[in-house]
C-alpha cells in the first residue's frame, strides 16, 4: 500500500489556477493584438515583442538572482504585464525606451514589492505613466493608423493626435465641440480602431470581444466594468446635456482613448483592485469619476491610467471599509 496523505479538508480542488487565469487574460488580448497589427503593422509587432520579452526577462532575472525564489516566469503574469505595457505605447516607440519601461513595470512596480500578488499598483500602468512623464514627446507622437504593412511606421512616421488630444487642444483654442467633431474619424472607425492612439487601446470592439471571453471564463466579474463605464457615461452625459457646445457626446468618451482597455484589463486586475463586490462598485465608480475629471478639466487629454492608479491606492481602504454582506448580518423579517 502507498503512504497515505493527511491534510485538512477540503480534499478536492476546483480546476482553476493562477496560470490558467493569466493565460486566459493573454487569450483575451489576442483580438486587440490582431487589430493593432492590422492598423500599425510591423511597428506594433516590434513593440509587442520587445515589451513582452523584456518584461519576462526582468521577471526571470530578478526572481533568480535577487529574490532567489522558485522561477515564476511560467505563471504568465509577466507576459500579461508585457503585452499590456505594449498596448499602452504608440507603435513608433523606440525599443530602448520600451526596455526602460519594462524595467520600471517589472522591477519597480512588481518585483520590488515581492512579486506576483503583492504589488499595490498595476505594473503596466506604472510603466505607462513613467514613460509618459519621462518621455512625453515619444509617448504622444501617435502614428496614424495605416493598413497592414502599407507604410513602415518605424521610419516613415506620419503622426497625428488622438481624438481626445485633438478635442482638448481645439477646445483650448475656443472652438466648439460640433466644429471639432467634423475632423474626428467618426464613431464606427473609433469603435473598430481606426484612430490615433496607443497600439492596444484603439479598437474598443476588439477589447470588448476579449472582455466577453474573460466574462464567460469567469476571469473577471461584470461589476467593475459596469460601474466604471456607467459612471463615465452618466457623468459625461450630464455635462453633455448641460452644454453640448463645450462637452462632447458621452458615446465619444466610451470609444476613444484608453477607456475600454483600462476598464476591462486594468480596472479588473485582481491584484490591485478590491476583493468584494461592494468594493468593486466603489472602485469602478471612483475610477469613472476621476477619468472624466482628468479628461475634461485636467492637464492631460487622457485620464484612465491616472484614475486607475489613484483608485489602486485606495484599494486597501476600500477592502477595509466595504465588507461583503455577512450571513445573518441583519435578521430577515420574512
Amino acid at each position: 500500500m502507498n503512504t497515505l496523505t493527511i491534510s485538512g479538508s477540503p480534499h478536492v480542488h476546483g480546476d482553476d489556477s493562477v496560470k490558467k487565469i493569466m493565460y486566459g487574460v493573454v487569450y483575451a488580448l489576442i483580438p486587440a493584438i490582431l487589430v493593432s497589427v492590422y492598423f500599425f503593422g510591423l511597428g506594433a509587432v516590434r513593440v509587442l515583442l520587445v515589451s513582452s520579452i523584456a518584461c519576462m526577462f526582468f521577471e526571470w532575472i530578478i526572481q533568480k538572482y535577487i529574490i532567489k525564489g522558485p522561477p515564476t516566469i511560467n505563471d504568465g503574469s509577466a507576459l500579461v504585464a508585457g503585452v499590456l505595457l505594449a498596448f499602452n505605447v504608440p507603435a513608433n516607440m523606440p525599443s530602448w525606451i520600451l526596455i526602460i519601461g519594462a524595467f520600471v513595470t517589472i522591477a519597480i512596480a512588481k518585483m520590488s514589492f515581492g512579486g506576483l500578488g503583492k504589488n499595490p499598483f498595476n505594473p503596466a500602468l506604472v510603466g505607462r505613466i513613467f514613460l509618459l512623464i519621462s518621455f512625453p514627446v515619444q509617448m504622444t507622437s501617435w502614428p496614424k493608423p495605416s493598413a497592414l504593412f502599407a507604410g513602415d511606421a518605424l521610419t516613415d512616421t506620419v503622426t497625428g493626435p488622438t481624438p481626445l488630444g485633438l478635442l482638448k487642444e481645439e477646445l483650448g483654442k475656443g472652438r466648439t465641440v460640433p466644429e471639432i467633431m467634423q475632423e474626428m474619424p467618426g464613431y464606427v472607425n473609433e469603435l473598430l480602431g481606426n484612430q490615433g492612439g496607443c497600439i492596444g487601446e484603439v479598437s474598443a470592439a476588439a477589447l470588448i470581444l476579449g472582455a466577453l471571453y474573460m466574462l464567460i471564463r469567469r476571469i473577471i466579474t461584470w461589476h467593475t466594468p459596469v460601474a466604471y463605464l456607467g459612471t463615465v457615461f452618466v457623468f459625461t452625459g450630464i455635462l453633455y446635456f448641460m452644454d453640448p457646445l463645450q462637452y462632447v457626446n458621452p458615446l465619444f468618451h466610451l470609444v476613444t482613448g484608453g477607456l475600454m482597455l483600462g476598464v476591462f484589463f486594468m480596472a479588473t486586475d485582481m491584484v490591485t483592485t478590491p476583493v468584494s463586490r461592494r468594493g468593486m462598485w466603489i472602485f469602478g465608480a471612483g475610477a469613472g469619476i476621476l477619468t472624466v475629471i482628468i479628461r475634461i478639466w485636467g492637464g492631460y487629454p487622457e485620464g484612465v491610467a491616472f484614475a486607475i492608479l489613484i483608485m489602486n491606492a485606495f484599494t486597501p481602504l476600500i477592502n477595509r471599509g466595504f465588507k461583503p454582506k455577512r450571513f445573518g448580518e441583519k435578521v430577515a423579517d420574512a
Binding site: 482553476d16 500578488g117 485582481m270 491584484v271 476583493v275 468584494s276 461583503p324
Partner: peptide, 17 residues
Amino acid sequence: MPCIRCGRCVDVCPMGL
C-alpha cells in the same frame, strides 16, 4: 501560488466572510 487577491474566496463564502 501567491495569492492574487482575485476575491473568489470572498465570492463563494456562504457566510459572507
